[in-house]
Design a protein around this nucleic acid. Structure first.
Lengths: 130, 130
DNA sequence: AATCCATATAGACAAATTACACATAGAGAG
DNA sequence: CTCTCTATGTGTAATTTGTCTATATGGATT
């Protein structure tokens, strides 16, 4: 998940991976994708790459997140037994989910502002020296 | 931590609190504050408000984070038994901590970019209608 | 027909993380 | 003597994360 510097010798992941937990930020991204058009999990995994998720994002976490969203009433699903290929679950955004999407947008703007505060402070600290 | 809409009837916190986990984002903020000048925990708690942390941020989580940063070698501390008031631990940024601060800045810029992608997509979806 | 790969969904689990409540203690004010 | 402010911590239950593994269908390749 953290690509900006490599893992250390011991094989542990880097310690600054905390900005955006994968499954948390995945939620508003899924909602916005489903606002555009209903689709199924496997397809959503591909589309999530546009939001900066790893191209080999763990499918299990996506399906788990989708099911949680459904538990919360933010999306609905029904089995789509089309011709060819295994049965797949087609997800759609609910009205409640669209409301939550708006709440997320407000929240994310706030979080971005906090990051701006940090980055401005960082730059003013390190811009003049060396 | 999430102020943009109230808690629901059951008393549970709102579900879109995931942008920036408190203790994770606290780490680079503490590093940048200690880059400016060494200080002790109680003082850092006040200063963290500038980064958008709640004014009644749990002190325990701050002290715990500071100790973890010390375990990782990013900060150093020694007891400051000054005149008046209880003894307090004075924290300073280490060289390794300053390096980590740079890594965090890169990371946070990336995360901010992902939020931009989300917000642009959000606005283009909802700008034209009504 | 046997094998392999892409599609598609899901469960299990250890470790980390969170929020919150609680514990301890010195010092000055009233 | 009690209250509040300063100052630093511990405990813990519940949630969340990342990762690994399981299962099944169907098309393509050999």
């Amino acid at each position: 998940m953290c690509d900006h510097h490599s893992r250390d010798k011991k094989g542990s992941v880097c310690r600054c991976g905390g900005g955006l937990p994968v499954e948390k930020f995945m939620q508003p991204c899924l909602l916005i994708l489903l606002k555009q058009h209903s689709s199924h999990g496997y397809d959503l995994i591909q589309q999530l790459a546009e939001f900066g998720f790893s191209e080999r994002l763990d499918p299990g976490s996506v399906y788990r997140t989708l099911r949680r969203l459904e538990d919360e009433g933010l999306v609905t699903s029904h089995w789509d037994v089309g011709e060819g290929g295994p049965a797949r679950r087609l997800y759609s955004l609910s009205d409640e989910g669209e409301e939550m999407l708006h709440a997320w947008a407000v929240h994310i703007r706030q979080q971005r502002k906090r990051m701006d505060v940090f980055l401005e402070r960082y730059q003013s600290l390190f811009s003049k020296e060396n």
